[in-house]
């Protein structure tokens, strides 16, 4: 059928592109991961070797914490910003979303300015309690950096979702006697479910793989992207870094897939 062959012809560039720039390097990465001295067992090492495993768990926990806190903060802020009109609102939204343009390095830099050795918080605590509070280079600094990074993105998604909420549903719930809390629990949060899942998954995957911020800050902490970097550039341990990369990819991809199937079902359930 000419029509069918036309469609295939149109798909050809996509196929070529996918194979050349996506599948081939990916396959190479997977193969490299198994080319170390231990062969396929190299993959096992990222789960068994204590240092690798600790890093893996660290990274997942950090990403999860970032996701949860981001969702909470962004939901409260996004809901408020979308529902209220007050002077300075536009400026506030612009400021909140300003960090969208920053690369991870700049975010790391900002955290150092805030909580580093010469940081604002350190200065302040020094003056007040005579002790310098420095946490920029700890996992908490990194956590703060990731929040800074992901909150603007999630706020925008939540605001868009809140705008689409049907006020009538909330009014109907109230007419049936629902308190403001019950309205949030029974009407608003379920309706925002798909937006939570979608933006939460992105926040999680970003926090798993963010490198710039970690690179700027992480002198004391091991997170997966940093580990890959050190194994690759410093130790020239290609097999392990490839295996770690594949592991990182699989976790992030699995979370996204899970989120998609979950949001798919909630979307269906929500009509």
């Amino acid at each position: 059928m000419p029509h069918k062959s036309f469609v295939w012809l149109c798909l050809l560039p996509l196929v070529v592109l996918t194979v050349a720039f996506f599948l081939l390097p990916m396959a190479r990465l997977v193969v490299t991961g198994a080319e170390g001295p231990h062969g396929l067992a190299g993959y096992l090492a990222i789960l068994v070797e204590p240092r690798y495993r600790a890093t893996l768990i660290n990274t997942v926990l950090l990403a999860a914490a970032t996701t949860v806190v981001t969702l909470v903060v962004a939901t409260v802020a996004g809901m408020f910003l979308q529902r209220h009109r007050f002077p300075g609102r536009a400026v506030l939204i612009a400021m909140l979303t300003f960090p969208l343009a920053f690369p991870g390095v700049v975010v790391g830099f900002l955290i150092i300015l805030l909580a580093g050795r010469q940081g604002l918080i350190g200065d302040l605590s020094n003056r007040m309690f005579g002790e310098k509070l420095v946490f920029a280079y700890s996992i908490f600094g990194l956590f703060l950096g990731y929040l800074y990074f992901s909150i603007p993105r999630v706020i925008l998604t939540i605001m868009a979702a809140v705008q689409k909420l049907d006020i009538g549903l909330e009014e109907a719930a109230r007419s049936l006697g629902a308190s403001p809390w019950a309205v949030q629990r029974d009407v608003v949060l379920p309706a925002l479910g798909p937006a939570f899942v979608a933006s939460g998954a992105i926040a999680f995957a970003t926090a798993m793989g963010a490198f710039g911020t970690a690179f700027t800050l992480a002198t004391n902490i091991d997170v997966l992207p940093m580990l890959i970097y050190t194994e690759f550039t410093l130790a020239a341990n290609f097999a392990t870094s490839a295996a770690l990369s594949v592991g990182l990819g699989i976790i992030a991809w699995a979370i996204l897939a899970l989120a998609r199937s979950f949001s798919g079902s909630t979307v269906a359930a929500a009509g």
């Binding site: 549903l169 009014e171 109907a172 109230r174 007419s175 049936l176 006697g177 309706a191 929500a270």
Partner: peptide, 20 residues
Amino acid sequence: VPIERRNVGMVFQSYALFPN
């Protein structure tokens, strides 16, 4: 008195049924 304590039954033009 807010609507939640007025004990009124409302039917909206859009029906506003809870989709979840």
